[in-house]
Structures are given as structure tokens and as C-alpha cells.
Amino acid sequence: MFQQISHIRSLGLATIFKTYLSACGLYHELRRKPDGTSHSGRLAFILGRMVLKTFSITNGALEADTLRYIRAHTTIPVPRVYASAEGYGRRYLLMQAIEGDCLEDVWKDLDDAQKDSIVESLRSYISQLRALPPPYGRKVCALYGEGVRDGRITSSGPVGPFLDEASFNDYLVDAAEIFMDETTLPGIRARMREDHRIVFTHGDLAPRNIMVKDGKVAAIIDWEQSGWYPEHWEMVKAMWNPMDRKDLSWNNRIIAMFSEEDKKDWMVDRELSDHLVGGF
């Protein structure tokens, strides 16, 4: 049985983080929007060689526990978690600041050998994630069997969990219905597979979430959208918000990294997702 990783929910530690943000004049900015409603955003603050990341409890994933889980079960480079806490309506994550550059910023400056090496590393990392045994059978869910946060599906908070891939697909179709001719949806739904392996998925493997140093991957960051998804979903999300379309050297390498079956399933998903851009 999957064991929940220890997560510090110390009100005392949360108070320390809240006090720090208050001293910087930032806490009330997190709590309120200009219209007076509650703020649900995610913000990060650089503290020397550390990063303090904060989320609302409603929309914030247990990213600290996900990072601990990945460090414990794979060789994927991720930031080290120094502390995490929950209190005052927010979650806090104090973690290692990664030395290096965002891949999105330096991709154009890398040579072909470096680009190929980075993509090969990503291929290895995805294989490691897919080798993790799913603790909830066919369930599509976050780390602890809870609802998932996924920008391809919605920007309004967690959805699910879903009993199986069929339920997940039904939700995707229902979410697309408002944007599409409903007569086309049954045909799309009929082509959506329900027999994928359920595997652990980063869920946002875009260049902005890949840190590099000296032409090599230094860390994979931002695991907020990770969870147990159908096997093709990593490609769906990697291509959801890819690199600048004027430079296809990233997109073409990523497409080649996945299987032909993944590509077919990605194209089926695009029949839905291409109608959703700007629809959130």
C-alpha cells in the first residue's frame, strides 16, 4: 500500500513563513486580489540559495511531498525540500534554488549535441516515472489519490479524482462540449483509448520547467500538475505549451521522443484541446 510521505503541517513553521512574508510587505498581497476576493495564485520568492514557494490550500498541490517522492524513488534531479508547512489558508515550500538557466532561455544557444543530450536525459526520466508502480490501480489522480491540477483541463482548481481512464475521458469530452459542435464529440470519444497504462506523469514538461547547467539537465521543477495519468498524457502536456513555434528544433525532438501510439493519442486529444485555447 502506498505510504504517505511525512509532510510537516506545523502551525509554528507556517507562522515563521507568514511572518517573513508580512515583514516584506507581501503576505496581504497574497491574501487579497484588488477586488477583495481571496487570492489563489502561486508565488515564489528567492532567498539566497533557497526558494520559498507559496500556494493557496484550495489550489495548491502537495508539491513538497511530490519532490520527496521523486527523490526517494528515482534519479531524476529535483530541488531538495528543506521544509514544508500548512497554515493560515496557505501551503509553504522552502526548497533548494537550482543553479543554472531555464532551458527556454538558452535553448537557442545550445549546439545540436547538447540539445540531443538534454532530450535523451528527459527520455530516461520519463521512463523512470513510468516504471513507478501505481498505488491506486486504474485511478487517475494526484500523489495521494486526490484530485489533479491540470492546466490542459481547467485553470479553476483540482478536478477528479477519476475512477479510471474512461471516466477521465468522459470529463475531457464534457469540458470541451461548450466550445464545439456536440455532434462531433461522440466520434472523438469513440477514438479515445481506455486501456493505457496509468503512470506517474510530470504533467508540465515544458522548457520553462527544465533547468540546465553546462549543457546538461540540472533539475526538473514545478511538479504541481503531476500525478497518475494515462501513459500518453505526458506527451499531450509537453505539446500543450511548447517552445516558440518559429523554432521547431525543440518540438520536433520532443515529438520524436514519444512512441507512435502516444502520437496518435495526442492527435486525438488535439481534436478537443485545439478548441480550448483561450477558453479558460
Rank of each mutant, 00 (worst) to 15 (best):
residue 213 K to Q: 12
residue 20 Y to T: 09
residue 172 L to Q: 04
residue 81 V to L: 07
residue 58 T to Y: 13
residue 170 D to N: 11
residue 77 P to C: 13
residue 229 Y to F: 15
residue 88 Y to S: 14
residue 74 T to C: 08
residue 61 A to H: 08
residue 102 C to S: 14
residue 69 Y to G: 08
residue 160 G to Y: 01
residue 208 R to S: 11
residue 99 E to M: 03
residue 74 T to Q: 08
residue 84 S to W: 01
residue 20 Y to G: 04
residue 49 R to Y: 10
residue 85 A to Y: 06
residue 191 R to P: 00
residue 42 R to G: 12
residue 136 Y to F: 15
residue 18 K to N: 09
residue 255 I to Y: 11
residue 55 F to G: 04
residue 195 D to I: 00
residue 203 G to K: 05
residue 115 K to N: 03
residue 143 L to H: 08
residue 144 Y to L: 10
residue 164 D to F: 06
residue 59 N to S: 11
residue 142 A to D: 13
residue 63 E to R: 09
residue 39 H to E: 14
residue 55 F to H: 15
residue 133 P to M: 07
residue 242 P to A: 01
residue 69 Y to F: 15
residue 17 F to N: 03
residue 101 D to W: 08
residue 209 N to Q: 07
residue 160 G to M: 03
residue 33 K to P: 04
residue 58 T to I: 10
residue 22 S to N: 13
residue 15 T to V: 00
residue 183 T to E: 08
residue 193 R to N: 01
residue 261 E to H: 08
residue 212 V to S: 02
residue 196 H to Q: 10
residue 101 D to C: 11
residue 159 V to P: 04
residue 70 I to V: 15
residue 224 E to I: 02
residue 266 W to S: 04
residue 238 A to Y: 02
residue 255 I to C: 06
residue 48 G to V: 00
residue 76 I to R: 10
residue 172 L to E: 07
residue 10 S to V: 01
